[in-house]
Structure formats: structure tokens, C-alpha cells
């Protein structure tokens, strides 16, 4: 018997330790979630890279590489978009603190670092950062619209 899918937005959460060994697990999930949402293979691969970059930033920069913390991923499936919210209680980043490198300058003056945010912004439709100083809870929200 086929059961018609609910039209209500669906969401679920995954909590991982702040360790890079779990990156592959998270990017695999992001890719599969993208396909479930109806995105094509190429777009799903881009979403998975954006999630890799976002979770890596949390582990290495927000938590300074300390592995005993938690990173929470919340996936929301709506009719319009796939939203991936990455929540943590490490050092927060606000949207107005983000400076994306200029790719042309990068090519002229190659150096390590700084490319993750650029990949996230190029591969997703929206990237938002929220830092809540009151609760200490911080979030990076990645949105991919469904065409």
C-alpha cells in the first residue's frame, strides 16, 4: 500500500561530536537529504560540500579543534527549499563579520585558508549566520531552493 507523503514540513536532527572523523558521515547525509528533497545529483554534491565547510568551520574555529563538544544539524524539508541548520555553542560568527575573499585576488595571491565560506556562498542560495550572545547558541543556516 502506498502512503501519500505529508505536505507538512518535515524536520529531523542529528547531533555529532565536534570531531572531523564524522565529516564524511555528515556530508553523506546532506547528499542523501538533497536527493530526497528532489535536488539533482550535481546540486546534491554541492550541498554536501557546503555542509562539510560549515561543520568544519564549527569544529576548527568555533570550537578551536576541541573534540568534546557537540554539533547539531537540523534538516528541514519544505515545499520551497531544503534548509540545513548547523547549531553549536562555540565561538559565534555574525553575518556582518563575514568577508568573502575575492577569487580574482585569491588567484593573484595564492594562500591557504578563506575558501570555505566562498564555496558555501556559491553552492547555496542563502547562507545566514546568527550569534545569540544571551544563550550562547549559534547557528549557520544553509538554504537550497527547490526549482
Amino acid at each position: 500500500m502506498n502512503v501519500a507523503p505529508s505536505m507538512e514540513p518535515a524536520e529531523f536532527r542529528l547531533v555529532i561530536p565536534s570531531q572531523t572523523r564524522y565529516l564524511n558521515l555528515v556530508t553523506g547525509l546532506a547528499k542523501r537529504a538533497s536527493l530526497v528533497a528532489g535536488l539533482d545529483d550535481a546540486t546534491a554534491a554541492k550541498v554536501s560540500i557546503a555542509v562539510d565547510e560549515a561543520v568544519t568551520n564549527v569544529i576548527l574555529h568555533a570550537y578551536h579543534g576541541e573534540g568534546e563538544h557537540s554539533v547539531e544539524l537540523e534538516l528541514r524539508f519544505t515545499e520551497q527549499a531544503l534548509e540545513i541548520h548547523i547549531l553549536h555553542s562555540g565561538q559565534g560568527l555574525r553575518g556582518d563579520q563575514i568577508v568573502l575573499p575575492d577569487p580574482k585576488e585569491y588567484i593573484k595571491h595564492p594562500r591557504k585558508g578563506g575558501l570555505g565560506l566562498l564555496l558555501m556562498s556559491r553552492f547555496m542560495d542563502e547562507v545566514r549566520f546568527k550569534a545569540d550572545e544571551g544563550s550562547g547558541r549559534n547557528e549557520c543556516c544553509l538554504i537550497k531552493k527547490l526549482d
Binding site: 565547510e53 591557504k112 564555496l119
Partner: peptide
Amino acid sequence: NYISSAGLGA
């Protein structure tokens, strides 16, 4: 299968 910005940096 894929390379993230960490690999590009290397």
C-alpha cells in the same frame, strides 16, 4: 570523490 577547501589549501 570530493575535495573541500582544506584540500585546496594544501
